[in-house]
């Protein structure tokens, strides 16, 4: 399929004062609450994973850009921000070599091989995550328990898949899910902290509101239908919203600029489809959490969604 090199939102354009570097700094600031609570829950392991991920991402980027003869552009911080987001969706026990492979895949297959920043059809973080999940499913499932007492050592969505809805309502309180008092990937456990970060990004206009709004609405609507029909078998929509990777996917991953649509309508549909797909995978798929796979799959549709654009005046 031939896609135009440059797709621009409809006029008028106003310069937002955002540069790539500024956007990346803002994303990292927005992740700070989730990082802090990750450090509080999992201690030094969080710092270790993040340090290795960010450091190796910058290192690979420098190396690959030198090898490929491109101007070195680590200053725009895309590598660092990517490494940070990847660290957020790894378990706190991730071994160092796995993180390094992940960041290599993220930079190489996610960005440089397509000709550098902006040409990648997929989100590099997701490519890396999917490759790691496929290759090292065991290492991706060694959880660490946050402090405090709770009833199970499995992440909420695994409980939903293996033990059913009753167990979920027994084991997890809404407050616990909001604060993140469960096992899981470093950055996905606390929905509240991710919401704070997301709100910051929305206020700073770093990310468009349509994608997260569509994402969360898609989850609520689609899982709500099944919950209303049979609450004994299907989990309630707020559980789906708070558990697993829904929040981080909605605010930090689906909003990746190069792999999401550019028109407001397109972004809304993109978000909705991601949300629906998340619930589909969670309820009927083989994996516990569908949020990351959902974004990965739906980003294939981005060129198609970019065709939805306002009518050109006068035609």
């Amino acid at each position: 399929m031939k896609t135009p090199e440059l797709v621009v939102s409809a006029i008028p354009h106003i310069h937002s004062g955002n540069s790539i570097r500024k956007i990346m700094i803002n994303i990292m600031i927005a992740l700070a609450p989730a990082v802090l609570i990750g450090v509080y829950f999992f201690g030094m392991d969080t710092i270790r994973v993040i340090a290795i991920a960010v450091g190796s991402a910058i290192g690979w980027e420098l190396l690959l850009q030198k090898i490929m003869g491109r101007p070195v552009a680590i200053n725009n911080l895309t590598g660092a921000a990517g490494g940070l987001i990847l660290a957020m969706i790894l378990p706190p026990t991730a071994p160092w070599w796995m993180i390094c492979i992940g960041t290599l895949i993220m930079i190489l297959l996610g960005k440089e091989i397509y000709g550098g920043l902006g040409n990648n059809p997929f989100n590099g973080v997701l490519i890396a995550w999917v490759v790691l999940q496929m290759s090292y499913p065991d290492q991706m499932m060694y959880w660490l328990a946050p402090p405090g007492d709770f009833m199970t050592e499995s992440p909420p969505l695994e409980v939903l898949k293996t033990e059913g809805v009753q167990a979920v309502s027994e084991y997890f309180s809404t407050g616990g899910l909001l604060m993140g008092n469960t096992t899981g990937f470093i950055g996905e456990v606390s929905s509240l902290m991710l919401l704070i970060g997301g709100a910051y990004l929305l206020i700073k206009k770093v990310i468009p509101w349509q994608i997260p709004a569509g994402f969360l609405a898609g989850i609520i609507l689609f899982s709500g239908i099944f919950w209303l029909a049979n609450p004994q078998e299907y989990a309630n929509p707020f559980f789906h919203l708070l558990a697993g990777g829904a929040m981080i996917a909605a605010f930090f991953i689906a909003t990746d600029m190069t792999s999401s649509p550019v028109t407001p309508k397109g972004m809304l549909i993109f978000g909705l489809l991601c949300g629906v797909m998340t619930v589909v995978i969670r309820q009927w798929g083989a994996w516990d959490d569908g949020a990351y796979y959902a974004v990965f799959l739906i980003s294939v549709l981005t060129p198609l969604l970019d065709k939805i654009k306002p009518k050109v005046y006068g035609r």
Binding site: L109, I113, V131, M134, S135, Y136
Partner: peptide, 22 residues
């Protein structure tokens, strides 16, 4: 060496083929 099972999967085959073509 633990192996890198991704390469053995069909997706990895395409990545390898693409790399060699490049």
């Amino acid at each position: 060496y633990l192996g890198f099972p991704y390469i053995i999967k069909p997706a990895g085959a395409f990545v390898c083929l693409g790399g060699i073509l490049a």
